[in-house]
Design a protein around this nucleic acid. Structure first.
Lengths: 135, 135
DNA sequence: GTAGCTGCAAACTCTTTGCAACTCT
DNA sequence: AGAGTTGCAAAGAGTTTGCAGCTAC
């Protein structure tokens, strides 16, 4: 039983065939798939699965904090399995998403919020860039 | 003639009554109105204006970089008149948007991208927080 | 005069939902 | 058995678009 599956069970979710398939797809993902992409990958395993179920399952998993929903500036959501805290740099030429962490940045964000009189609850930082070519 | 109007003229846009109304609404906005809000404010000046025109005009202005489109995590877009570079802190309890700038942050972002081998083209930073209450 | 702009309504995309049938536990 | 889950299709929200008429230049 995968860790995702385990944590779903702990949350009291019924482990249906469809959910098992979606969890496997997520477990196997090293990227940040859209709902449509999760759906396509799931269909390869069980072609009878419906996109409504994918939407419902991803929403549930997001609520349980087992996955993280992102809305890059594309008009739809992407999901990723909830790993360590990090941010994203989106390659504007290829759409590739690169993850990074930066401790200094974390401190700075919290400080900025505090200075404005706020407790930082959540945030979003995305960089969009082009690869530097060394000729 | 407002500065926005001037810059639209320079861009070769025809100055119709509807556009003048929308530009005035934007000029008078100190906040970050949604399309619906711009539409409502515009209708108070000219009730015959259509929401399609508001969408079309805001898209145009965004392309010309006269306004900036934001997608906070709300499921729709908000616009603001394109002023100095800054970021936003969204008050999670009231929805209020607070603007801030931070030079240190700017440098850090560019450095992170550079270290990853990227030239920073664009970025997005939003903080979401709750007001700290001093009891 | 004409290219560009408008209002209207229909269409589109992404997402959610009501419902009857089905299935884990 | 019963609550939770599913597929389907319809509905929703936000946004875009085709078209015929209108308007700034």
């Amino acid at each position: 039983m995968s860790e995702l599956e385990q944590r779903c069970a702990e949350a009291g979710l019924k482990m249906t065939g469809q959910r098992r398939v979606i969890l496997k797809v997520l477990d196997d993902s090293q990227d940040h798939p859209s709902v449509e992409e999760v759906y396509d990958r799931a269909k390869k395993i069980d072609s009878s699965i419906s996109i409504a179920t994918v939407y419902r399952t991803l929403s549930l998993l997001d609520e349980l904090d087992l996955v993280m929903r992102h809305e890059f500036q594309e008009g739809y959501s992407r999901y990723e399995v909830n790993v360590d805290h990090h941010h994203h740099l989106v390659d504007l030429e290829t759409g590739k998403v690169i993850e990074f962490q930066n401790e200094e940045l974390e401190k700075l964000k919290a400080k900025i919020a505090r200075d404005l009189g706020y407790e930082l609850i959540d945030h979003r930082l995305e960089l969009y860039g082009k690869k530097i070519k060394k000729d």
